[in-house]
Design a protein around this nucleic acid. Sequence first.
DNA 1: TTGAAAGCGGTACCAG
DNA 2: CTGGTACCGCTTTCAA
Lengths: 345, 345
Amino acid sequence: MVASKPTVNDVASHAGVSLATVDRVVNGRPGVRTVTIERVNKSINELGYIRDTAAANLARRRLYRFTFMIPNTDSGFFDSLASQIEAQTGVLSTERTALEIKRITAFDSHSVVIALDSLDNKATDGVALIAPETATVRDAIGRARARGIVVVALISDLPSSLRNHFVGIDNRSAGQTAAQLLGRFIKADKGSILLLINSRLARDHLERRHGFDMIMSEHFPQFKVLPSIEARDDTELLETVLPNAFNEWDDIKGVYASMSSNKGLIDFLGNRSDDLMVIAHELTPLSRNALQRGVFDALISQDTGHIVRSAVRLMRATIEAVPYNALQERIRIDIFMKENLPPEP
Amino acid sequence: MVASKPTVNDVASHAGVSLATVDRVVNGRPGVRTVTIERVNKSINELGYIRDTAAANLARRRLYRFTFMIPNTDSGFFDSLASQIEAQTGVLSTERTALEIKRITAFDSHSVVIALDSLDNKATDGVALIAPETATVRDAIGRARARGIVVVALISDLPSSLRNHFVGIDNRSAGQTAAQLLGRFIKADKGSILLLINSRLARDHLERRHGFDMIMSEHFPQFKVLPSIEARDDTELLETVLPNAFNEWDDIKGVYASMSSNKGLIDFLGNRSDDLMVIAHELTPLSRNALQRGVFDALISQDTGHIVRSAVRLMRATIEAVPYNALQERIRIDIFMKENLPPEP
DNA sequence: TTGAAAGCGGTACCAG
DNA sequence: CTGGTACCGCTTTCAA
């Protein structure tokens, strides 16, 4: 009964013009008189025409080629990100989008710069990047963009060069969330809190620390937050650094591990049995297991599937110069406890 | 350089058959000799063909009409669900799917039965249902299905009639999560905990209570969980019931509000100032505000957008008789605190 | 049991 | 500036 959606054909006949002209107007292509444009737009409004993007993509047959640059660190989180990218590859091939993964050396601007400069703008339309915020990286991003490659920041923001082109959680809020949970979980009425980060160059970890400190000093002044330990996702490094910390400070009641590889920490904590409260980041097979065994008390996480899909949408929107609602696409800060863990993939 | 994805045409010529035959095989339609089927499948595998669903839908031009039956209770949660359905309507019109909302009387099987029986199977392909688990509802679901209408349960499972056709959170886990949070948040070393539910007929609330009790007795035996109060999303009822409860039990240290309308509870708590810990369900404008003001300490929630999209995918998959990965589509149990609230919509 | 051909809603090239 | 038309990848009559 309900007339089906109007198509370009309906608009064309209603406006008394040809298909081609309607197409020109709809896609804002040049070569149409203003009066004609107005006539077509009038018909579009009157008929309530909405473009069928699926059909458009089919006809257009444009292929988007995107590269994801992921640190090659031994981290379940980046592995999960990579596997999500692979998982999306199948789905996206239907949407004329091809994804490629390039592993770069972690915490190394130079590696990022080389990877970025070697990008062929004939074979790559966009790149999603996890990188430290340094001057050389910023310059390389500028060069890639000058060659017409769209660049977005993943996980860790690069506001100096990629304003509004960031896909990831609000890390300050993540740090605040961790602080609130940890502060409430710790039963003792005083003590120290240990904070582990990847690297002082990583903006995401700095932001988390800021958020964490803010809540701690405001709501839990009875706890003392120790200086951050830089762990660099380095399991061996942690093997020496952690015992030292616990020797030096004998009243540690909580740990906030903001880094992306938890192996060293879990190994260390697994051998202890005290009432330490531990909050870590990112849901991975390792951290899931630690949560289930009670080694971790909660996890702050971000959905890697969401991140990948959002990054793709952001790159496409940028290329097509259509709006992208960053607020709406904002990645959630997930809180996981043993009880609300999602099923294993 | 990379040859583009193979199409039905490639498969057809590779297998030495026509387009129509490939289509028959791909879609499992009858009327093809077994040998031919095998030949086509062989080509499909060799070429790595994957069906372009966008093009398929375009050609198929089938329209799916789905109805969502939502309780008409004064609840921000159901409103949010309804607005998500409306929001999806635009997007889905592109995917040849039309959504309709029908508000039914809350907690009333009779209303559900009437709505279900009045569904025209010529105008409706599927219905997503929030309903109590009663015999009359089960029978009405049976009749709708007999008429060829696909039925799925939303939010609250109806396992007796809709095995594997449920979209919502695992409510037992949700109750466990609430218990774990509440138990950890409460600083006192003993006291009572108040539990509020919608209705004893609502399976979701029963499951939450079970999960809650399980964790409480196992990990927090020092707290006493009081009998559930049935609140029926009725603000006025709560106005009398809550003061009574707090008079009768003067050592209440925590509240777990499992119902979907929090208005009455917030009004009541807003006038008190004690160290009560409160965990409620569902992120709505009201509960968001309560969280921000510190009236609530945490929220257990489920993403209404996800639920709507998942329900649509489940109904479509059922109609097309293609597999639906319930595990993969499982709705997350979200935990929100003041610090990790998503931006307002 | 199979194939040819006409679309689905758009896009893009080529003429006029 | 505008129109005609041949596709895009797949489905669906209608005949053979």
